[in-house]
Amino acid sequence: MPVRLADFPRVRYGMPGNAACPGCPETMGLRYVKMALGDDVVLVIPAGCSSVIQGYTPKSGINFPILNIVFASAASAASGMQAAFESQGKDTTVIVWAGDGGTGDIGFQAMSGAAERNDNIMYICADNEAYMNTGIQRSSLTPYGAWTTTTWTGKKEHKKNIPMIMIAHEVPYVATATVGYPQDFIDKLRKAAKIKGFKYIHLLAPDPVGWKFDPSLTAKLGQLAVQTGLFPLYEYENGKLTVSVFSRLYRKPEKRVPIIEYIKVQGRYAQLMKDPEKIKGLEEEIERQWKWIDILEKSSNPSSVAQQIIKENK
């Protein structure tokens, strides 16, 4: 269902005057959650930028009820809340809103547990690719070559592919999204909210402070991540992987925007810019992403592969 902007009522979905940095992708993302799902939502937020964005008591700068919780157990706290709501006969959507560290590192065990139990919660990882709140330290989701305050010469290892790991959990719904394409994110949120069980959405959240780019480019970088093929948008539902509309054009390498367009505006890749050899490391990340997509697409949708073979043979 395409999202028509003029159809949205003229209400404030966000909560102005919060503590987020200018150009923050997380407040953008949270606003889209409100647009997509409305008021019957409760957030669980582990330590991270979003725990600070709320600002100071007695006001909260995020427009949702929130259980802030310790870093490692956001998913479990959400499972508890959901169980309570269910026993009270309510179908409130409980969403974990966590960063990449709270998802892929310290919170991973709890998330994996909730996914394995197929608890009826939604888990959104707002991935800004480092521990931004503590001052830009590398996480397992920091991409290859990126500068952080704990990888001064650029990260040597590749980004952990959390969405694929969640697909391996065989949960009912996994999707990737970015604040660069809000319509796509809103669609996926709405679809996920209708599914019973564990839903995972990986939201790429370009961060002007940690990635060192001009804050006006947050949305643009979200789009470039998709257009370069580095961050493919897809959904995995009922065992079937589908590449999302905004990414389809870029599965062909020749259609992709050159990766240099993405990295040259980000200060964190200054090292890469000096050494073109290293850019290959990032290009490998792109290839790896699409390799997995190809494998899953073919295995989950054999008839379309057959059709393609027929087409190619004609």
């Binding site: 919780i69 499972s79 309570a84």
Partner: peptide, 9 residues
């Protein structure tokens, strides 16, 4: 954490 979540709800 889950117990707290349920209790908070």
């Amino acid at each position: 954490a889950a117990t707290l979540g349920a209790a908070a709800a």
